[in-house]
Amino acid sequence: MRYSLKAAAIAAVTVTFATEAAATSWDVSLWGKRRAFTEHVEKLAELVSEKTGGEFTLNISYGGLSKNRENLDGISIGAFEMAQFCAGYHRDKNPSITVLELPFLGVASLEQEIELSKAVYSHPATQEDLGRWNATLLMPSPLPQYNIVGVGVAPATLADFEGLSVRATGGIGAAMETIGAVPTSMSASEVRQAMDSGVVKAVSFAPHAHMSFGTIENGKWWTTNLNPGTVNCPVVVNTDALADLPDAHRDALLGSIDEALDHYVDNYNNNTMAAWGPALEERGISQVTFADSEIAAFKEAAAAPAAAAWIEDNTARGLPAQELYDLVTGMIAKGM
């Protein structure tokens, strides 16, 4: 009997150690606060924990691990295992995915943005590009077309943007230059202070960000149909950390991506956009709608030159730039 009790005790300790050894905890670097932009990461953490019985956890930090412009650097050295970043914050570090930030691509929905991103993310050139940072692209953070909230006198025509300082990154910034605006690139968390101090007079964001980062608290006007483009903000994981996961944990992570994205889209379409109109009305923000002819002229002036410059610059980097551009535009033309 003594032997049996001793054996049982040893077995219990062994099981405990084995369970502890099998547990996995990843640090996830985001920024700002929980919002529509991060709902897929929050959902992913929930799903992974459920599927593994709590053995695999994603510890999400909003700014506690890294500055948002340094998340890709943190991934590269293994400072944390997962992070979100925006391509336009550092185009030189991730030129392949900036094709998705070109102005006036004509993306019609979040669902289409997801499909385009997945196609670009899976391209060998993109994987090699991000591989320089020991990063594996996990999933996109699909965003609708950007529009602008500003202070001061509302623009009556696009000519009124001449000389106006606008927070606009990537292809949107390049597009705004064609109508005389002065684009300034800064992270989302810097925008409110820049707007309050007069460093910028207007801010280009998706609706959730205008609400989350406070531009509508002192904004006076909003453009309803400028729609120059959007930004691409992937979630990435450290490649070594992904490879080191136990099979069950890796399957739980990768097998939860589509459900996490479905949750994100549903939340954005049904909650964020439902709140956007009332938020503007409550604050008396005037809505500026430009004539179709002006938007057409804006697109003509911005789209083709930006695409040509992107292809030339990135071909010189050694990327198959024309191939990536054709992949995106071809899918859009087919309605994919």
Rank of each mutant, 00 (worst) to 15 (best):
Q112L: 10
P103K: 12
M1W: 10
W26T: 01
G54I: 07
K118F: 07
A175N: 11
H208M: 11
G318K: 02
L226R: 10
N68G: 00
T38D: 04
S96G: 06
Q112F: 12
N232A: 13
V120C: 04
K299I: 13
E81T: 02
A296Q: 15
E282G: 09
F161R: 09
I295R: 08
L105C: 10
E300T: 15
L137K: 06
E162A: 13
N71R: 02
N94L: 03
R167C: 04
L280F: 02
L245K: 06
N59I: 06
P103G: 10
L100P: 14
G131V: 07
A252M: 03
I77E: 10
S212K: 09
R283H: 03
Q127G: 01
N270D: 14
P140E: 06
P278K: 06
Q84D: 00
A202D: 09
L226F: 11
V231P: 00
E101L: 08
L44V: 03
A302E: 10
R69D: 10
E259A: 13
P320S: 04
E111L: 15
G32I: 05
M331C: 06
S4M: 02
K299N: 13
G335C: 09
K118V: 03
V328D: 10
H123T: 02
S256M: 05
K67D: 11
N314G: 00
P305E: 11
G54D: 07
V328H: 11
G318E: 00
N147C: 04
Q193F: 05
A119P: 09
V182E: 09
G74R: 08
W26I: 00
A125M: 03
L105K: 08
Y264S: 13
V99S: 10
P144N: 13
E101I: 11
Q145I: 06
H90A: 15
I77Q: 08
T126C: 07
L253F: 04
L261P: 12
A83M: 00
E39N: 08
Y268N: 14
R34W: 01
R317T: 01
F37R: 06
S49V: 04
T24C: 11
N94V: 15
T14S: 14
I285L: 00
T230P: 03
P95Y: 06
A12H: 05
L143E: 15
G106H: 08
L245S: 08
L280E: 00
L102S: 13
G64K: 02
L242R: 05
T19A: 15
D262L: 14
D251G: 05
D247Y: 02
A209L: 11
V151H: 00
V203T: 12
I148T: 13
A108G: 04
S29D: 01
A296V: 10
P183H: 09
K220E: 15
L105T: 12
A304V: 15
L254D: 04
T38C: 03
L242C: 01
A18L: 12
A209R: 09
N147Q: 05
V265W: 13
G330A: 11
P278R: 09
T230Q: 11
K220V: 06
T157K: 14
K67S: 09
V288N: 08
E281S: 13
T223I: 10
H263E: 14
H90S: 14
I60E: 03
W31M: 05
Y3A: 10
T184S: 12
S165V: 14
S96I: 01
G198D: 03
